[in-house]
Design a binder for these strands. Structure first.
Lengths: 242, 242
DNA sequence: CGCTGCCTTGACACGCCTCAACGAGCGTGG
DNA sequence: CCACGCTCGTTGAGGCGTGTCAAGGCAGCG
């Protein structure tokens, strides 16, 4: 129960007690990744699969001119490289600028799940398809939303995703990143992120202080950001459909 | 052999003659989708899986203010909605502004592949993971590249992808889209796309006339766009690794 | 022949970027 | 315990890339 992976997968598939026990067992041996350390780098062919258990990690890419684009945030319950074996090698890097707790799962374990636990495997595919949906959503924000709404949208997404795994309460969550990280996520300059943030705070939409984001009126922020969580495909627990 | 799906999957997995025959058979009954018709719309739970066989389609989303963001181009050999069953419902729309040829594959056929043709199924997952990689690449371009290089990068990608399935020659391909479509893809205004295009032509990098894009010097364009096709994960045919 | 859709051009406005400087907080070493 | 040097956040000034509005040209087609 205390396991963010299980808490998340429950939204994507029906898991039996046996399934949960298997997942619980897999996540037992966690290890700490220090700040500014990469978990996997571009070009690697990792043997083990990495899963974030606590803290934040991110997918990113650095261009020849030194610019960095962050392409995804990995929060507790998210896999880093579940399916690289199929692709061959990593086409981007995963790092943590803020330290995080992960587990390394041997590829053999995944193969075993594949053979004997189809329900779990389906849940894992659900998770990677949701990642893809999230990516599409980021692309839409990037292409069409102005800086303030883009940022607001990101905050809404993080709130919901963190709530799902029990790392956010109704209107706030811990957020250890810097404004520079957000700049590289939104494709903006640091200066502009700073000003946008002030504007959002001025409208009482987002309050970010002491590594914690607080949202005075969640509904208002969601309207402002035009946030619709459908792309996260969080089936209601108890939803009967396939 | 004449089948773009097979031509593409060959880059992602080793297929036996039997596998190819199965795929060949699946793609037999094509149908025509007229211009400006949607193939699947947001919220749908399609029974059949749709595969593009000829022409272009695209994934897109329309925001409340009417803006449209195109999130992917689907070219021959690309699936529209292979795995929606796992997600539940579509979180975006797929349409063709230009007409295309597709096949509808009954879900039962996919289930059958899943049970009896693991090699094919793995190849299909490879294709969806490549789609995800492409999405990440688009996000990087969107966030970090200026308009001209962004556009150049897109053209490089399309050249390579279309070559893969036999729909482009060494330095040109048919391209029926309008500048407005490109604008919605790159997140730019039509006017700016037009001016950027003129500039690229001025530098003799891209020549777009009569619904055909021609690239005078492919290598130069790739350098200009900082294009690295690794994210497409096109294993060399004959590559021995797993 | 006259639509209509698409491309093109010019003028102007604005969002966001860059450069540059300064301040606040914090860990470290003297 | 203070001084120092980080990193991070904040502010101002000016410039550029891109958007908007508006108008006209051209080709395709009924």
């Amino acid at each position: 129960m205390s396991n963010p992976l299980i808490r998340k997968l429950v939204y994507g598939a029906h898991l039996t007690d046996d399934d949960r026990a298997v997942l619980e067992k897999i996540c037992r041996k966690t290890q700490w990744v220090p700040s500014n350390k990469d978990i996997i780098t571009e070009g690697e062919r990792p043997d083990n699969v990495h899963l974030v258990i606590d803290g934040f990690a991110c997918r990113y890419k650095i261009l020849p001119d030194g610019k960095r684009q962050i392409m995804a945030f990995l929060v507790p319950g998210d896999f880093c490289d579940l399916h690289v074996a199929i692709l061959g090698e990593m086409d981007h890097t995963i790092g943590t600028g803020w330290g995080c707790q992960i587990v390394e799962i041997p590829r053999a374990t995944i193969d075993e799940l594949n053979q004997n636990h189809p329900r779990i495997m389906r849940a894992l595919w659900w998770a990677t398809l949701v990642d893809e949906g999230t990516l599409r959503s980021w692309l839409v924000s990037m292409g069409q939303r102005p800086a303030d709404r883009h940022m607001a949208h990101l905050v809404c997404e993080l709130l919901v995703r963190l709530q799902t795994v029990g790392y956010a309460d109704a209107d706030s969550f811990e957020f250890p990143l810097s404004q520079a990280d957000i700049a590289d996520t939104l494709g903006l300059s640091i200066v502009h992120v700073n000003r946008t943030l002030q504007e959002l705070r001025g409208q009482n939409l987002i309050n970010w202080k002491h590594k914690r984001i607080h949202i005075p009126d969640v509904k208002r922020l969601k309207v402002f950001a035009d946030f619709d969580p459908k792309y996260l495909h969080l089936r209601q627990r108890g939803d009967a459909s396939s």
